[in-house]
Amino acid sequence: MLTKKQLDLLEFIQKRVARDGVPPSFDEMKEALDLRSKSGIHRLITALEERGFIRRLAHRARALEIVKLPDALQTKLDAASGFNPRVINGDRPGNRPRAAQSLETGGAIELPVMGRIAAGVPIAAISEISHNVSVPASMVGKGEHYALEVKGDSMIDAGINDGDVVVIRETSTAQTGDIVVALVEDAEATLKRYRRNGNTIALEAANPAYETRLYRDDQVKVQGCLVGLIRTY
C-alpha cells in the first residue's frame, strides 16, 4: 500500500508523462509535492521502484518509466481523461464470421473484428474482417460499432494491452482527450489519444517510450472513438 506522498508523486509523474511525453525533473517533483529538498523525492522514487510501480532506466535523462498504477489511481486518471472503458474477459474467438454486419442476439451484439490496429507506430489501414466478437448490447449504445485487435504497447498506461480487442464507435469527430482510431494520410491507422491545437493534431501515446506525433489537421481523419475493450487470457 502506498503512502499519500508516494501516490501523489506517482500521479504527478503519470500526468506529466501523458502531457509532455517525458517525466518531470526532480526540481519539478519537489515543487509539486512541496518538499524542502530533492532527497525526499529520491526516497519516494526508491520506494515506488521497490514496490514495482516505476523503473529507472540507465543512461537516459529523466530516466523514469511507469510500470503500473494502483487501481484507485488508474480509475481516477481514466475518469479525469473521460476514458472509462468496460473490460470484458473472454475466450479468444476461433470461428470465421458469418456476416460482416453487426447482428444483435438477445443481450449481446456481434461486432466484426476489422483486423489489427497499431498501438505503437501506425500500420497499414484496416479494412478486412477477420472474425466476429460478442459484446454486451449495453456496452455499445447507439450508432455503428466495430472491433479491432490491438498490436503494440504504446497505450499500456491507459490500460490497453497488446492483444486486447477494442470496441470502437464509428464517428468522424472527436474531443480533445478521446482515444481514437486515426487514419493518417489515408494510408495508416493507429490507436492514440487525440488532441487538437488550432490546425495541429497531436496523436499521443500512453507510454513514455513513444513520442507524440504531430500532424496538420488535413492529414488525420478520425475513424472512431474507443468505448470499451475485451481482454483474453
Score class of each variant (00 low, 15 high):
A205P: 15
G141L: 03
L7A: 04
S138A: 13
M29C: 14
M155V: 07
S134F: 11
N161D: 11
E65P: 11
V167A: 08
Q14F: 08
G120S: 11
V17N: 04
E128W: 05
E149K: 05
A80D: 00
G90W: 03
P24Q: 02
R116W: 11
I41D: 07
Y194H: 12
I109P: 06
T3W: 02
I54Y: 03
D91S: 12
M139D: 01
A202C: 00
V113F: 08
E50R: 15
Q14E: 10
N89F: 15
L226H: 01
A189D: 11
E50T: 12
I126C: 12
L73P: 00
R51M: 11
A125D: 03
L44V: 11
A182I: 06
P112E: 06
R55W: 11
T46A: 11
F12R: 03
I13F: 02
E144A: 07
F26T: 10
I109V: 15
M139E: 07
Q14P: 01
I168W: 00
V181I: 15
G120Y: 04
H145M: 09
D178H: 03
G198N: 13
I201Y: 02
Y210G: 14
G198T: 02
T173G: 03
D78R: 08
G228I: 02
M114R: 15
A108M: 02
L2R: 04
L183D: 08
K30I: 03
F53Q: 05
L7G: 01
K142Y: 08
N89Y: 15
D217K: 03
G159W: 08
E104G: 06
R36T: 13
P23R: 09
L2I: 03
D186I: 02
R196Q: 04
S25Q: 10
R36V: 11
A158V: 02
E11I: 00
L73N: 00
Q74A: 13
I126W: 09
H145R: 09
S134I: 00
R62D: 05
A80G: 00
I230F: 00
A61R: 10
L2V: 01
T105K: 07
G40T: 03
P122I: 07
S127C: 05
E149I: 12
E211F: 12
I13L: 05
N95L: 12
M1W: 10
V67Q: 15
E204T: 06
D218E: 09
N199F: 12
A158Q: 11
R16H: 12
L69V: 02
E185A: 03
L48M: 09
A58Y: 14
L226A: 04
L48K: 08
I41Q: 06
L64P: 08
